[in-house]
């Protein structure tokens, strides 16, 4: 999986490309942990180019949400492909994460 980063004001967009799975979940957690240490705790995770997510990938997103929430921050998810959105719904995590159609709307909400 590739993670690219873009900062807009005090918010960070993380764009994921590829598969967020058991082999890449730690990479995302480490990235968010590093951002949080630098005080970047308002994040948008753009999954428009994420083709696949498994329970470990979902777990990494939950872990990221918990770590920024502890510091008063928050996470928004955006641009989910239908197949990936179906996994959020299957696990009921769409009730926890605020999910937007695009990064502009996600940025405005945070």
């Amino acid at each position: 999986m590739e993670i690219s980063e873009q900062k807009i004001d005090n918010k960070t967009i993380l764009s994921l490309k590829g598969r967020l799975d058991a082999s890449s979940a730690k990479e995302l957690k480490d990235k968010v942990s590093d951002l949080a240490k630098e005080g970047n705790t308002f994040l948008v995770v753009d999954m428009g180019h994420a083709d696949f997510i498994d329970s470990s990938g979902l777990g990494s997103l939950v872990s990221c949400l918990r770590s920024v929430s502890r510091l008063g921050g928050d996470i928004r998810i955006c641009s989910l492909k239908d197949s990936v959105r179906a996994v959020f719904e299957l696990t009921r995590l769409h009730l926890i994460f605020e999910i937007f159609d695009n990064s502009d709307d996600a940025l405005k909400s945070i």
Partner: peptide
């Protein structure tokens, strides 16, 4: 609930 209470693991077999 508080985000901190959401379980991180335990979804694989359930899926």
């Amino acid at each position: 609930s508080n985000d901190l209470e959401i379980p991180e693991r335990g979804r694989g077999l359930a899926i």
